[in-house]
Nucleic acid binder design. Structure first.
Length: 874
RNA sequence: GCGGACGUGGCGAAACCGGUAGACGCACGAGACUUAAAAUCUUGCGGCCGCAAGGCUGUGCGGGUUCGAGUCCCGCCGUCCGCACCA
């Protein structure tokens, strides 16, 4: 390798240079990370991709950001862990199998090979020796092991449950995967079905998952809020209402017995004197008990079931009820009887499946009461209203105020009334038990993980008629997927594969059958970051020393779409792993950053068909832009800027960009245009601007390397500019404000160019060019290596320690302050940095524009903010 | 309905604790080099008035606090996102 400066006319050739430097890094082995390095650790991780076939621009943006952090932290002396893997189980592989008759495994591994190559062409500083794929038995074996451990620890249960059934994908969906009543993937209307399912008991940690959000200071407030709302903690009172006449439970034989109370959960016990009715869910035991003798109720219950969970969101309007004829006694006045309704808006899954209706202070209760003529009694009166004239007609009042019409609670605040009611009812007894108990409720439900799918992690259970659900012995793990499967018929091929399915019971040896459900793929991604800490382990999922050393991930970067699902599951999984001894930490991600999407203009031809950007030519006339089809020359409509998607055809293939401009250009553009948390608009002009800058840096560095002669005066200014940029970039990389880093780097490039034109001396130019190269190195690593060589610096810039900003250069001797008169800027004044207020004031009063404005009078007031501004009030 | 975020040039944006609004980039205009183009360089670029110096005005709209407001407070308007029968 020669050290010769390039010919000034020779352009930087990314196509040749990038593979060269990628190989140089690979040969030097500088990105593989040992676990026993004494330097402080730093774990940076981007959300691993699903191997769908090819990487997209969203990946480029995500991994470019992570790589900047990794390379920067490495230069700052950290032992950086920056791994990559594949979220490789999932439905698309099965869909491909059905559509193209390929094996899901072959399809997945072919995609992985393609995408690995694409990521490598980006020049990411990844430790490929730690690569994992979740569909590898060497990975899911440990997941099965942990499933069994969780089962032992009581963190896994099996029960029948009403589940969300996706009729298109033929599978169960978690609540989190149902969006507006539709499957998150298929978009099909979700049906309600009763199935026996495996559940992870995420609700066991509901309180901690909610509380610990407060400590996640380096998470976006938005994500913490979304999780807090999702967990949905509320504090209330569980009150037992005595039935007027006991009820015999539905005919399930002797065990059924007698029902004499209905339990109600409420967050507003203060409004208990405003109660007008009780409403219970259609699948409440009391409803079931009554349905046997009441045909219209039976019909009503069936109607509720039909609308069920799936329709819940769509059916916003009609609140329906059925009067059971049953009465309950008011807990604060047994002589007061309330009617009991079965209502379609009461959910069995939340609280106790029964509510008391207080129409005056809850809109839904009011609508219901008005519909069925139940009336209302206001019990909370706003402070600015007269209690005597305060009436409710069709708008409920849910604000604060003073209690009215509430006997012993009158004149209390709502909070006081809550406590007074709770205190009294906890003391009172009904059938030997307290009437009420304070209770905390959560919206969060347990995580149903069973999926009726082939391409997922098998659940390591064997069902035996005699022994029940028997865990597969740890020594027999992994339960691997059968290789030879067909997808000719819909449904789960594991069900049909008798050779795989039919096995002896591990406990009694009788014929038994494997669990044919596989795990939700969100399980796979709930612990992969922990596996990265020691992926070579064969007999255990993790090694405590490695997990506890590396976790939590210092900086996790990914899309906002995972704000709830993945991030909540991972937080649960870490806690479960801690409970079973596989981890010493409970929070997986100390720092989280959610990046924006990559968006692009859309184009449509006259027939309304979408046209992809590569077939579009734009002509600009001033600020007017017109699109044409490159082949037909037909004019095209320019549509909205939207997320890149195949359906709108507004995608740009990273491979094309890397082939024509190079990875550095793509990375630089992805980092430069918008703040990283916001959407970035991919434009051809923007990419070309980035490509121009690549060439400009190349020319500048070559010129600086060749600089001689010298003007000492220009030296100081250039050195100052370089160190200023250095300090600014440091600050902004730490806060992931890459767009600001880019601006500082441009400013330094401009300063260097000006200085070279003013023939600055060789050493100052070399120093500034060196700093410039190190500043771009995390973002455009290949170009930086080539420039590093031109500057004749030793080794690889990827291994060079970060330069130290000389802060003494940043302090100015003279400072220029803006001078305002009545708040409007009228002049500047330059004074020594140390000048006192009096000296500044004197200098300002001597200024010509100030003299003119004052017209001989003295100012009424002079405000001097040292180092910032001077304002005269006249 | 509930919760949250945001609104700054033609565009992406910057402005950290209230202190020079528009850094930096893109696009665009004028010019240089060139037979020409590309590339590169110089220069202009919120609006209005002015040859210029300079002046007026300007951060969604209306008010307020302050010597001073893009930033703080009150009230509107608009856009986006999340949750949605949660008792």
């Amino acid at each position: 390798m020669t050290n010769a400066a390039p010919n000034a006319l020779e352009r930087y050739n990314a196509k040749e240079a990038e593979p060269h430097w990628q190989q140089a890094w690979s040969e030097a082995g500088i990105f593989s990370t040992p676990n026993d390095d004494p330097r402080p650790k730093y774990y940076v991780l981007e959300m691993f991709p699903y191997p769908s076939g090819r990487i997209h621009m969203g990946h480029v943006r995500n991994y470019a950001m992570g790589d900047v952090v990794a390379r920067y932290k490495r230069a700052r002396g950290f032992n950086v862990l920056h791994p990559m893997g594949w979220d490789a189980f999932g439905l698309p592989a099965e869909n491909a199998a059905m559509e193209r008759r390929v094996n899901p495994r072959d399809w997945t591994y072919a995609n992985i090979a393609t995408m690995r190559g694409q990521l490598q062409s980006m020049g990411l500083s990844l430790d490929w020796s730690r690569e994992i794929a979740t569909c590898d038995p060497a990975y899911y074996k440990h997941q099965q092991r942990m499933f069994l451990d969780f089962l032992n620890a009581g963190l896994v249960t099996r029960r029948t449950a009403k589940v969300n059934w996706d009729p298109v994908d033929h599978t169960v969906l978690a609540n989190e995967q149902v969006i507006d009543g539709r499957g998150w993937r298929s978009g099909a209307l979700v049906e309600s079905r009763e199935l026996t399912q495996w559940f992870f008991k995420i609700t066991d940690f509901a309180q901690d998952l909610s509380d610990a959000l407060g400590g996640l200071e380096r998470w976006p407030e938005k994500v913490r809020l979304m999780q807090r709302n999702w967990i949905g903690r509320s504090e209330g009172l569980e009150v037992r209402f005595a039935l007027d006449h006991p009820l015999h439970a539905a005919g399930t034989g002797g065990s059924a017995g007698q029902i004499d109370t209905i339990k109600v959960y409420t967050t507003r016990p203060d409004t208990l004197f405003g109660a007008k009715f009780l409403a219970i869910a259609a699948d409440h035991p009391v409803s079931a008990a009554l349905a046997g003798t009441d045909a219209t109720l039976q019909a009503f219950i069936e109607e509720c079931r039909r609308t069920g969970t799936a329709q819940a969101a769509i059916d916003t309007a009609e609140k329906l009820g059925h009067d059971t004829g049953l009465k309950v006694r008011h807990p604060l006045d047994p002589s007061w009887l309330l009617p009991v309704y079965v209502a379609n808006f009461v959910l069995m899954e939340y609280g106790t499946g029964a509510v008391f209706g207080c129409p005056a202070h809850d809109q839904r209760d009011l609508d219901f009461a008005n519909k069925y003529g139940l009336g209302n009694t206001p019990v909370v009166c706003p402070e600015d209203q007269d209690a005597a004239s305060f009436i409710i007609t069709d708008t409920a009042y849910d604000g604060d105020g003073r209690m009215i019409n509430s006997r012993f609670l009158d004149d209390m605040t709502a909070d006081e009334a809550f406590r007074a009611v709770a205190d009294r009812l906890e003391e009172e007894r009904l059938g030997g038990e307290p009437v009420a108990a304070r209770k905390v409720q959560f919206r969060l439900r347990d995580w149903g993980v069973s999926r009726q799918r082939y391409w997922g992690c098998p659940i390591p259970i064997i069902h035996c008629e005699d022994c029940g659900a028997v865990p597969v012995p740890v020594a027999d793990l992994p339960v691997t997927l059968p290789e030879d499967v067909s997808f000719d018929v819909p449904g789960n091929p594991l069900e049909r594969d008798h050779a795989w399915r039919d096995v002896p019971c591990p406990r009694c040896g009788k014929p038994a059958r494997r669990e044919t459900d596989t795990m939700d793929t969100f399980v796979d991604s709930s612990w992969y970051y922990a596996r990265f800490t020691a992926p070579w382990l064969q007999d255990a999922p993790t090694e405590r020393a490695a997990v506890d050393h590396w976790l939590a991930v210092d900086q996790y970067i990914g899309g906002i779409e995972h704000a709830i699902l993945h991030l909540l599951y991972a937080r649960f999984f870490m806690r479960a792993m801690k409970a079973t001894g596989w981890s010493g930490v409970s929070e997986p991600f100390a720092g989280l950053f959610t990046q924006g999407m990559v968006v692009h203009e859309t184009y449509k031809d006259a027939a309304g068909a979408w046209v992809q950007p590569s077939e579009v030519r734009i002509e600009a006339q001033g600020t007017e832009r017109q699109a044409f089809h490159v082949k037909t020359q037909a004019p095209l409509g320019i549509g909205a800027i939207e997320k890149m998607s195949k359906s709108k055809k507004n995608v740009v293939d990273p491979d094309d960009i890397i082939a024509s401009y190079g990875a550095d250009t793509a990375r630089w553009f992805m980092l430069s245009d918008s703040p990283p948390e916001r959407d970035v608009i991919w434009t051809e002009e923007g990419v070309q601007g980035a490509a121009r800058f690549v060439q400009r840096v190349w020319r500048l560095v070559a010129t600086a390397a060749a600089a001689n002669g010298g003007d000492a005066g220009a030296d100081a200014a250039l050195r100052k500019a370089a160190h200023k940029a250095l300090a600014a970039v440091e600050e902004d990389v730490e806060r992931l404000r890459f767009n600001r880093c880019v601006a500082h780097i441009y400013t330094l490039a401009n300063a260097l160019e000006d200085a070279l034109r003013a023939s600055v001396s060789g050493p100052a130019a070399g120093e500034a060019a060196g700093i410039l190269v190190q500043l771009i190195a995390p973002m455009m690593p290949h170009l930086a290596e080539a420039c590093w060589r031109v500057l004749d610096r030793p080794g690889l810039v990827a291994q060079a320690p970060w330069p130290r900003a000389d802060r003494s250069l940043l302090i100015e001797d003279d400072i220029t302050l803006p001078v305002q008169i009545n708040g409007k800027k009228r002049a500047d004044v330059t004074v020594p940095r140390e000048a006192g207020v009096a000296a500044v004031e004197a200098a300002v009063l001597a200024l010509e524009p100030v003299q003119r404005a004052l017209e001989g009078r003295a100012p009424r007031k002079v405000i001097v903010v040292p180092g910032r501004i001077v304002n005269l009030v006249v």
